[in-house]
Design a protein around this nucleic acid. Structure first.
Lengths: 222, 222
DNA sequence: TAAATATTTTAGGCAAATCTAAATTATTTA
DNA sequence: TAAATAATTTAGATTTGCCTAAAATATTTA
């Protein structure tokens, strides 16, 4: 079941992401996410149900079937690989790539995406730190914690960010922090909950609690 | 007028290419090119006419307006830049890239295509030797001749190929001839019209008339 | 040039994806 | 638990893009 329209794929992806955030997803949730109306969602739920990508009983809710999840992971894989391409090869900022990747993710060629993956060096995480599913849909999850929860003296690498705003990107660019940057907690100030951190040997400075809350770190390899 | 659907863009592109081959284009020509029916073409001609990309009077023919031509050149530019990307960066053979580029050419981002152009080194010709329009729609045309018409002793660079078949690609790959390869005519054999040519200092061999007819060369820089 | 043929257009219909308004079912609250 | 409210679904329309069959126009040929 791979003959899905772009619109059908967008519904599947939306349901997948909503399911990740909260395992019970409503018609209204999907309508809100896709800027459409509940009635349109119901129409599509019926279509996706006949196409076997959904478990759906009217008035009683719905969720992706195994096949639906497989499809969703394929789309997510393409989306994140293209985002990686746009940031790494075409010098886009991470806040600029989402809309473009939304289009590129619907390009159908299977071999294209495998070659792109190789060309990019088989990255495991996209520019926001989100995991890129492999061609079998397997996701590499990292045991990551919020930077504010890291003990003093420990070092870990930035593995994800809590927002994709231009404002955050600007701040991180200025402080030379990116996915993969190693950070050591040097001191915690209880007055304003700011943190003194060290990134590279000579880079030591203070960051606000707001910024620390937006950073997630891991000790695993990226 | 840039809010065009993929389908509308495909019609514009088809009309553009048909116009290049023969300045008078018929409803049936377009239908044949797009694997559709004449009645469907008429429907679309009316739509494109109201969108100002066509000059159309019913029963009396049609052609692209200046705006339509501008749109067509934008699509051709995207198509050929993506083909270049697929061949140069992702190691596709030139006979494999057309279908994928047909999808990629409809990605809308303007800045994407400008960055891709820079990333690829602002190529002027695609992997088949077809010119890539610049962002203003300007095409760099080459004074090129068929290889069989090049005089003995002269050298010129391969600038285009007459077919995009897998068979031709296979032969050229084997003989290490590509777009840009310099060729010198060493001898012409009238018995079978074969040509002895030299590509690089130590590469001298004979090619058939069939192959020579499929190669176009230029003395200009590529 | 009139008839035959070919081309193009119109008429009417269908499927996908969307909408609004109304009806149905589920959930909350008094 | 019954009424009020919220969520979901149905009914009926709209637009895009396509189709077939029939009508209108253009072109060719006898």
């Amino acid at each position: 079941m791979d003959n899905l329209s772009t619109t059908e794929e967008n519904y599947i992806k939306a349901i997948y992401h909503l399911q990740q955030a909260d395992s019970t997803v409503s018609t209204n949730d999907v309508a809100a996410k896709l800027n459409t109306k509940a009635a349109s969602v119901t129409d599509m739920l019926k279509r996706l149900n006949t196409k076997q990508v959904l478990n759906y009983e009217k008035y009683r809710g719905f969720s992706l079937s195994d096949e639906g999840e497989r499809v969703a992971l394929g789309i997510v894989r393409k989306h994140r690989l293209w985002e990686f391409f746009l940031v790494e090869k075409l010098q886009f900022g991470w806040d600029e790539v989402h809309a473009i990747a939304e289009e590129l993710e619907h390009i159908t060629s299977k071999v294209l995406i495998e070659r792109l993956d190789n060309f990019l060096g088989n990255p495991k995480f996209d520019p926001h730190g989100d995991p890129i599913p492999d061609s079998n849909g397997k996701i590499q999850t990292l045991p990551q914690i919020n930077l504010v929860d890291m003990p003093i003296g420990e070092t870990a690498k930035v593995s994800a960010v809590g927002s994709q705003s231009t404002e955050l990107l600007e701040l991180l660019t200025h402080k030379k922090i990116a996915i993969g940057t190693p950070i050591t907690i040097k001191k915690k100030f209880s007055f304003d909950n700011s943190l003194e951190i060290e990134t590279y040997s000579d880079q030591r400075f203070t960051i606000s609690r707001e910024l620390a809350l937006a950073l997630f770190v891991t000790k695993q390899q990226l």
